[in-house]
C-alpha cells in the first residue's frame, strides 16, 4: 500500500466538498448568533442593575471555562428532557453560537470601554436617552475597532466545527471519518481536512490583517 494515493484523494474530493458546505453553513449561522448575542451580553454586563449584570458575568465566565464539547452534549442530550427537541445540526450551531458569544462579549466590552468618556457626556448634555446614546453614539464607535478581534474568533469557530462530528453532524471531519471507516484509508481524508482548515485560517488571517491595516488608515485619515 502506497503512502499517499492521489487518485483516491481525487475521488473523495466531491464528498468532502459537499461536507464543507455543512461546515461553512454551521460557521456562518453560529457566528451570526455569537456576534449578535455577544453584543447583548456585553450590554447586559454594563447594566446598572445588578440583577442583570451579575448573572451575565456568571454566565460568561461559566461558559468560557467549560468545554464546548460538553456544552454541545448538554444541548443535544439535556434539552430533549425538557421537551425541546432539535436536530443535531441545530444543537451544534446553538452550542457554537453560545460558546463564542461569550468570547465576542469580551471583545465588545473592550470596544465599548474604548469609547471616550466625552462622547457619553456630550450625549447627556444633549439630553439623549441611554438607549439612544448606545444606538446612535456609542455602539457605532465601539464596533469598528474590534472587527479584527471578532475575525480572530470567527477563524477560531471554523476550527471548532469538527466537534459537531461528535453528535453525528456530517460536516467535513465526520465525512472524512466515514470515508476512512468504509475504505480503511484514513490518511487522505484526514490530511485533506487538515489542509482545508490550514488554507481557510491562513487566508482568513491575511484578510484580518488587511482589515486591521485598512481600519488604522481610516482612523488616521479621519483625524
Amino acid at each position: 500500500m502506497n503512502i499517499w494515493d492521489w487518485e483516491f484523494a481525487w475521488r473523495i474530493m466531491p464528498l468532502l466538498l459537499d461536507a464543507v458546505v455543512i461546515t461553512v453553513y454551521a460557521t456562518v449561522l453560529g457566528f451570526a448568533f455569537a456576534a449578535v448575542f455577544g453584543l447583548v451580553l456585553a450590554l447586559m454586563r454594563r447594566s446598572h442593575r445588578p440583577w442583570i449584570s451579575l448573572p451575565t458575568v456568571a454566565f460568561v465566565e461559566f461558559v468560557r471555562s467549560t468545554p464546548l464539547l460538553v456544552q454541545i452534549y448538554f444541548l443535544y442530550f439535556v434539552l430533549p428532557e425538557f421537551g425541546v427537541l432539535m436536530p443535531a445540526i441545530v444543537a451544534g450551531i446553538l452550542g457554537l453560537g453560545l460558546h463564542f458569544s461569550t468570547y465576542c462579549s469580551e471583545v465588545y466590552r473592550a470596544g465599548l470601554d474604548g469609547v471616550p468618556r466625552g462622547q457619553w457626556e456630550a450625549a447627556v448634555s444633549l439630553n439623549m436617552s441611554r438607549y439612544r446614546t448606545y444606538r446612535d453614539i456609542v455602539i457605532p464607535q465601539a464596533i469598528p475597532p474590534v472587527v479584527p478581534a471578532l475575525g480572530n474568533y470567527l477563524v477560531g469557530m471554523i476550527k471548532e466545527t469538527p466537534l459537531l462530528s461528535s453528535i453525528a453532524v456530517v460536516e467535513v471531519m465526520q465525512q472524512a471519518k466515514i470515508i476512512g471507516s468504509e475504505t480503511f484509508r484514513y490518511i487522505e481524508p484526514i490530511t485533506l481536512v487538515g489542509a482545508f482548515f490550514l488554507v481557510v485560517s491562513l487566508v482568513a488571517m491575511m484578510g484580518i490583517r488587511r482589515t486591521e491595516a485598512w481600519l488604522r488608515q481610516k482612523v488616521l485619515g479621519s483625524h
Partner: peptide
C-alpha cells in the same frame, strides 16, 4: 491553522498506517 480535533484524529488514525 489546523483544528485541534483534526490533529488528534490524524495522530490517532493515520500514524498507525
Amino acid at each position: 491553522g489546523t483544528s485541534a480535533l483534526v490533529q488528534l484524529f490524524w495522530m490517532f488514525y493515520v500514524l498507525p498506517h
